[in-house]
Design a protein around this nucleic acid. Structure first.
Length: 152
DNA sequence: GCCAACGTTGGC
DNA sequence: GCCAACGTTGGC
C-alpha cells in the first residue's frame, strides 16, 4: 500500500465538503500538472491512503485522511467548457487528464500545520516542506506517514 | 496583495 | 532544442 498527500484549497473544496458528501466520497478532479497526473494515474492504487492538505489558506496543513476507492480514469471536467478545469487541448478520445475517487476516512482533531511539519527533522525530505515545491500530489513514505500521525 | 519559484508555451 | 515571456501556485 502507498501513502500520498493531496492538496486542495479549502475555499474550493475542503475536508468538510468531503465529509459532508452522502457517500463521504468524491472524485479528485482538476489535477492539471503532468508530474502529479503521472503519479495519480500510474501509482495510485485502490486502498492507498492519503492526507488531505489545505493549501492557500489561513492555516495551511494536514487536516484529515482519505482512502483511494477508485483508481484513475479520465477527468471529465477537462472536456466541460463550463468547468474551471476545462482544457480545450485535451482530446476526449485521448484524455490528457485523470482523476481518482477518494473516500473520507477521518478528520483530524486539529490541523497539523505546515509550520509544525517544517520543524520536524524526520520530515525534512518531504517535498512539501522544501522550498518552492508546488506539487499538488506527492508520495509520502510509510515512515513519514506514521510519524505524522504521532503528531496528530 | 506580494512575490519567489516553478511549469508551460511558443517563436526562433 | 533553447529560452524568454507568461501564467500559476501558494506561503507569508
Amino acid at each position: 500500500m502507498n501513502y500520498w498527500l493531496l492538496k486542495s484549497e479549502p475555499d474550493t473544496y475542503s475536508i468538510d465538503d468531503l465529509a459532508r458528501d452522502p457517500q463521504h466520497a468524491e472524485h479528485w478532479d482538476g489535477v492539471r500538472n503532468y508530474q502529479a497526473r503521472n503519479m495519480m494515474r500510474d501509482q495510485m492504487k485502490l486502498g492507498d491512503q492519503a492526507f488531505f492538505y489545505h493549501s492557500n489558506c489561513k492555516e495551511p496543513g494536514i487536516v484529515g485522511i482519505m482512502e483511494i476507492v477508485r483508481e484513475s480514469y479520465p477527468d471529465f471536467t477537462a472536456h466541460d467548457p463550463a468547468s474551471n478545469y476545462y482544457d480545450p487541448k485535451s482530446d476526449p478520445d485521448n484524455p490528457r487528464w485523470y482523476m481518482v475517487d477518494v473516500r473520507h476516512v477521518r478528520t483530524l482533531k486539529r490541523t497539523i500545520t505546515l509550520t509544525e511539519l517544517k520543524a520536524q527533522a524526520p520530515l525534512a525530505e518531504m517535498p512539501l516542506v522544501r522550498r518552492g515545491n508546488r506539487l499538488s500530489i506527492m508520495p509520502v513514505s510509510a515512515e513519514q506517514w506514521r510519524y505524522i500521525l504521532t503528531l496528530a
